[in-house]
Each structure stands twice: as structure tokens, then as C-alpha cells.
Design a protein around this nucleic acid. Structure first.
Lengths: 207, 207, 207, 207
DNA sequence: TATGAATGAGACTTCATTCAT
DNA sequence: GATGAATGAAGTCTCATTCAT
């Protein structure tokens, strides 16, 4: 039976990752000190370097491993079946809901992933691409089912969908979690994405 | 009377701001050194502190002043008139086009504004809110014209629209400006936002 | 009864010492990590501290024990007999030859012994003094035989002889073992030491 | 008129170099802390990095610049003229004498130059080679004058001479400057090098 | 004996900011 | 106003050593 004590809540590497999520989300990557993460993990500074090459590697590992869990989780939820439209709803609700369940993680990914993707040499956000892939898969399925416009550019659409969700999460976080509750927002954004801004049958010009 | 010489075509303060855009967009805020910006502006390190309180203030001033120009510019373009739908198209095209005209500036805003909004004490991104306001104004106008759904939540929609555009710009930049050319993307995202993902008349569930 | 297995042909302590010679000669004492030596010895880091007090002690033990073998070895060779001049030749040839046979060891002694003798508290290089003693013994014997100048200051001469040999070894090592092959050098330096720089009978002044 | 105060004894860069000589000679390169040198120079830690790329560069600059002065100085002394034998005497006396005049510098060069030559990438001890060149020049001149054996291998001899002097200096330093005073040693080693160990006319074997 | 994960003190170095000129 | 040399606080990372197993 695993012991339960302050320093035995789990594997040391994982304790460090979880502390990093907390500290990075609170202060941002550049304003976070490795020693802070060490303190929050209950390990010595040097211990962090037994598990991670350096501070950058800690952030990247965090992205890939935690994002990997997110991807696996949403895929599991989607596997239950239903129409593509249902799945898109589930995906969106799951994304917005993540902010309640894994608040710190989402904040780190939202705020730091851009920096890292742009400025860290040799880092490809593999698991993030997989997350986008989940959206593509749904959209393609929707096309096959005849629910989604066959001429939709999936590459552009999946980015637009992710961007919309991401910005809404960010708004929620930056408002101090006071405005636009995720569940409300999810319904609203679903309708926007599925039906668009216009009243049905409106003339949108150019065609 | 302002002198006119080789290095005086612009005000020294503005030279610093323009250099900061260049350096911040290339390296990111935290990896940029004040002395680098000084060198790129052709002024001494200390001179920067005559015009800006500190490095943070330089970034914030950059946001507010440059973003102010962007807002004024897009408002001017929209003033020409047309339907709300036309205006939304113009807004979107203008946003995507910015990436060609003001590449560095857009990159800084995309990548650094989040950090700053989240972590800089006492900074409210006033001009950024005005930019969102431009979207709201268009949407409200569309409602009045009867082109946009009257039950649309404008607060959510404007964020979603901005998020979608922002993510598409980011994709373009991170791809090394090779994928999804802004003008192509603009048309695609316009249609997505106006008409939605679904085929017209499709049953999107929930009533 | 000592076990005989692949990794037990030598005593563990000796494996560590031999690995230390290799690592120290390659990287220098300060740039060598204890864990590197552990890996090269095939033991755990902590095991080194069962046999040596600390990193310094490892270096000192290495000096004394390995140097002890060198001294015993050269004494054995000299015991065969011959004139003092013959013995000096043997000594010099043996010294230069060591560089081929025990390259790493000689490099460590040349490069690290000075540091250690100067900066390590409480370290007297006993075996190194014995090596110098071997030279003294030869020189004294030469005096008794009448081959070496009776007024020679043996203390100075033995240091000068060692210094000359040492510098020539160093040159060989630092040249990447391309210049001044030890055997060639040995002959040359023998003649220099025995006969001096001058042509026989030359007036060297002051006398 | 230059002010004379604790912090105005000269150019800042030179103050740092002189402090480095003192600290390196006392503790050795690896045991010396940059902050110690800063304190001894009367500058802030960071100031050192305005003048030197890093700690290694400080040591290398020290070698080359100070050694350059030593070479220039001995060349000036030798320019007065005299026979090659006289010049060799002057060179040797000057070398041994350096230990009194520039004790710290000589100690650093003796103890640290080897390490650096062996382990620092991309460092060629240019000025040290020039010092050896001074010896070669004297020996070649001696050959032309007919005072020095024409078959002497100058490359080997100059190293042997340097090595002998170096070791004698080292002995003096390590003895706590109690044994073998430089001036005594100089005379003794001169005679050894010029006339050799043997009694004149002795049979040294091999021909 | 042997292990090797963990420790934590301490080094080097950077860089935003100041201030005498 | 303008300069840029100087500052020094602070952060990342290393590595000799320990000790529970």
C-alpha cells in the first residue's frame, strides 16, 4: 500500500510537473524561479535537474505530457459515439470545462505555449497538433455524414475553432473567472460555429 | 522648430518604439535586452529611460500607442459605409492584412499581450478593448439591420471572432509565413463566421 | 579467496584509481567529475567514498601509489649495475619512455601535481621526492666514481634534470604526440646534460 | 595630473588584471572566485565582464599581456649586446630574478599555464612561444659565434633550458621561498647548462 | 560492502537600471 | 537632453558528498 505523507503523494517527477503547472500559471514561465518550483514540489533545487534537462525542458515536458493526457481524455469521451455535430459539442464543452478541472494547466498552455512555439529552438508541439487533429477528425466525419459543408477548409476551420475557444478561456481567466462562465460560453460558441452569425437565409453577399 | 536631419526624420521616442517592435517580435520580450533596443534605435541605453519608465513601460506604451493607430486606422476604413456584413468583411480582411503590413507589431501583440495582460500589475489593455469594441459595434449594427441574429451574445461573439483571427495569424507566423496566406484565410474565415460550419438547414440538434 | 570473474581481475580500489588516471589526464582534475570516474570504474558514485576520503584524496592516493610503482620500477632497472653515467642514461630513457607506457599517469603528474603540491593543505609528495632522490643517488655515485664534477650542487642539479625531462614530456604531449619523439629526445637531452651546451674547451667566462 | 586614490591607481582593466594575478597565484585558477577578484580590484562583479569575456578569458588575457611584457623586457636587456654566452647568463639571471620582482605572475604562469594550454580549447600561448624563441635566438647566435656546439638540437635544448629554470623557480616557491635563492641557483644552473654534469674530458660513453 | 537518488551550497554570468559627466 | 560605464542583485545550473536501503 502506498504511503500517504506530505512527500509521498506520488512519483517525484510528477510532483515536480504539478508544481511547475501551479507556479508557471501563477507567475508565467519567465517570472518563475526554479527554486520556487523546487520548494513547491518539496524537493531540493538540484533534484529538478535529475528529471529535466533544464528549465525549458521542464516547460516542454509539461506541455507534451499534460497535453497528451488531455488529448487522450477527450478522445475517450468522443469514442462513445454520436453524430459529428454531437461530437463537436462534446469537444467544445470539454474544452471549456477543462478550465474548471485543470485551470492551471490550461492557463500555462494558453499563455506560454505561444512563446515556446515561437522562440524555443527545436520544439514542435506534437501533442498540441494532435489536439487540433481531434477537431479535424470531427469535421471530416461531419462532411461524410452530410452535416458539414463539403467545401469547408478543415485546416483553417480547426484553427479558427481552437482560436475562438482559446480566446474565450483566456477572457474567463483574465476576468478573474467572473465573466462568461465556461458552460454558458460553450453553448453560445457552439451555436455561433454551427450556424454562423447571420440570420438563416440572409444575404451574405458575394454569392 | 524640429530639426530635419538624417537621424531626425522621426522623433527619438518613436525610433525607440519602432526598434522595440522589431526586437520584441524577433526575440520575445523576456529574451530582448534593453541595450539591444538601444543599439537598434541608435541611442544610448540610458536614453531609453528618458522616454520610458522601465522595460515594462516600453512594452505597454508600444501596445497602447501602436494598437491605438491600428484602431484608428480600421475605424477610418469602416467609416466609408456599407452594410454591417460588408464592414465585418472589411474588418477581417484588414486584420489578416495587417500581418503583411505590420508584421512585427502583430507578432508582438499576439505573443506578448497575453503575458502582459496576465502578469503586469496595473495594466489594462485599453486600446485592445477598443479594438474589440469595433467588432461589437459592427455586430450591433448588423442586428439593427436585421442581418445578424438578434439573440447573438455580442460579448462572446466578438471574443470568438478575435480569437479565430488571432489564431490564424499565429499559424501563419509560426509556419514561417508559408501556410494559409492571410488573404485566402480571410475569405474562408468570413464564410465560416457568417454561415457557420453546417450545411444550410441542417438539423444541429437541441431544437 | 578472491573471486576471479570478468570484473574482479583487479581489486575495486585499483579499478577506481586506474579510471581516475584516465579521466584526470583527459579532462584535468577540476574538470573531472567524481561520477565520471565512477562510471569509468564500473562502480557507483558512493562506492568511491568507501575507498577514498574525498576527491582530493583520490588524486593524492593516485600520485603516491602510482608514483611509488614508478620509483620502484626505475630502481629495479638501475639495480642491474653499470657506471653512474650509464645509470643516468637509463634513468632518462626510462623517464621519456614512461610517456609511451603510462601516458595517462605521466600527464596527470605533470599537469596536476603542481596544483596539488601548491594548493592542497597537508600534502607532501613523498614519492615524488623519492623520485628526485633516485637522481641524487646517481649523481652522488658519479661524483664518487670521478665522472661527475665534485663541486656540482646536487640539489639544484636534480631539480634541473627533472625539470628538463618534464618540460620535454609536456611538449610531446601538448604537440599531440607529434613532435620530439621521446627516444630521440632522450639521447639529445642526455648529451646536453652530460656535456653542456658549449663546445669542449670553450671559454665560458667567469673563470 | 592623475588623481591618486584607492580606486584610481590606474586603468580599471589593468587593476582587474593585477588583482587576478594576486588571487590566481594565491588560490589557483579553479579555487579563485570571480567575485574575489572583483573585490580585490575594487570593482563590481559585473564590471569584470565589461573587460573580459569570461573567467577563462581573464586568465588567457593575463597570460598573453603580462607574458608579453616579460618578453619585451628580457629582449630589451639582451639588446645591450655581449656574447651569446653572456646573453644566456643574462637570460637565466633575469628569469630567476623575475621571481623576486614579479612573484605572483611567475607563479600563475608556472602553475596555471599548463592546465590552460592543455585544456582550454582554442588557446595558443603565443607569448610563451616568443619567450622560448628568445632562447633559440641566443643558442643560434652562440652557434654562429662558435661557442655552442653546432650539432645542438635547439628545439630540444630550449625546452630543456626552460624546463630546468621553471622547475627551479617552482622549488623556490613551493619551499616557501626558503630554499635555493634564485641568484645562487642562477649561477649553478648556468654552469650546469654550459659545461654539463661531467668533469671535463670524461668519457661519457657512446663514442 | 555497495548503491545512486537526493541534497544544497555556491559559482558564474546576465542585464535592467543609475548617474556622473 | 544624452551618454554609456558601472553596478550588484538574482537566477540557473553543477557536482561533491551523504545516507537510507
Amino acid at each position: 500500500m502506498p504511503r500517504r505523507g506530505p512527500n509521498n503523494g506520488g512519483d517525484k517527477r510528477d510532483r515536480i510537473l504539478r508544481a511547475a503547472v501551479k507556479i508557471f500559471s501563477r507567475n508565467g514561465f519567465f517570472n518563475s524561479k526554479v527554486s520556487e518550483i523546487a520548494r513547491a514540489s518539496g524537493v531540493a533545487d538540484g533534484t529538478i535537474y535529475l528529471y529535466f534537462k533544464n528549465k525549458d525542458d521542464l516547460l516542454i515536458s509539461l506541455f507534451e505530457e499534460k497535453m497528451g493526457e488531455v488529448v487522450a481524455d477527450v478522445r475517450r469521451r468522443l469514442a462513445a459515439g454520436g453524430s459529428a455535430i454531437d461530437k463537436l459539442r462534446i469537444f467544445i464543452e470539454n474544452h471549456m470545462d477543462l478550465l474548471e478541472r485543470e485551470s492551471g494547466l490550461v492557463e500555462v498552455i494558453m499563455v506560454e505555449l505561444r512563446q515556446s512555439t515561437k522562440f524555443l529552438k527545436d520544439y514542435t508541439p506534437v501533442k498540441f497538433f494532435e489536439y487540433l487533429e481531434v477537431i479535424s477528425d470531427i469535421l471530416e466525419e461531419g462532411k461524410r455524414e452530410g452535416a458539414i459543408r463539403p467545401d469547408l477548409n478543415v485546416s483553417v476551420a480547426r484553427r479558427a475553432i481552437f482560436g475562438a475557444l482559446d480566446e474565450l478561456c483566456l477572457t474567463y481567466v483574465l476576468s478573474g473567472k467572473r465573466k462568461y462562465h465556461p458552460s454558458v460560453t460553450a453553448a453560445e460558441v457552439c451555436r455561433l460555429l454551427l450556424e454562423g452569425l447571420c440570420v438563416p437565409g440572409a444575404d451574405v453577399g458575394k454569392g
